[in-house]
Amino acid sequence: MELVSFDWWLFCMRWLHILCGVMWIGHLWYFNFTQTPTVPKIPTELRPAVTKFILPEALFWFRWGAMGTIIFGLILAWMNGYLGSAIKLGIGDHSAHNTTIGLGMWLGTIMWFNVWFIIWPNQKKNIGLVQATPDEVRKAARLAGLTSRVNTLLSIPMLYCMAGVHFY
């Protein structure tokens, strides 16, 4: 395979899409499987180590992982020639492949929206980047946490569609 062939670029986009996706979903699952259940068990005086140091750094890689995943994913779908068909879930095209990847893409897009427009704005209040009253911080943390759980839920069928598309 020559270095500059179309197939190589196609693979390159898939590789970058997967790298960013692991960065994103890895952090999502870290938050939901490790951090959220463990923080309440940490003595109060030690919790700022998580909320002031680990959380801001993890949120950086989390949200930019999400951004890279959707950008490289859209380029990949466009290069594969099924972007338009997948957006309309393959309806009218009699393509189970495009229906499957389209459902995965829509689930991923909802998750990306949740990251950038619900989780991150609310986490900014939680980590002190945006001024807020203690009551606002409590509400913001709750909303960010629940939305993160929704994304964990959606990640299961999303990954079925992404990884299982070749069965269709």
Binding site: N32, P37, T99, T152, L153, L154, I156, P157
Partner: peptide, 30 residues
């Protein structure tokens, strides 16, 4: 009633249920 999203196990359970719905949807659409 407690929010099922407060439980990690129930979140995963709902994720599996939604996956089955997605599989049925693929077969219904395509």
């Amino acid at each position: 009633m407690k929010n099922p999203l407060d439980s990690l196990n129930q979140t995963i359970g709902l994720g599996v249920v939604l996956t089955i719905v997605v599989i049925l949807l693929i077969h219904a659409i395509a």
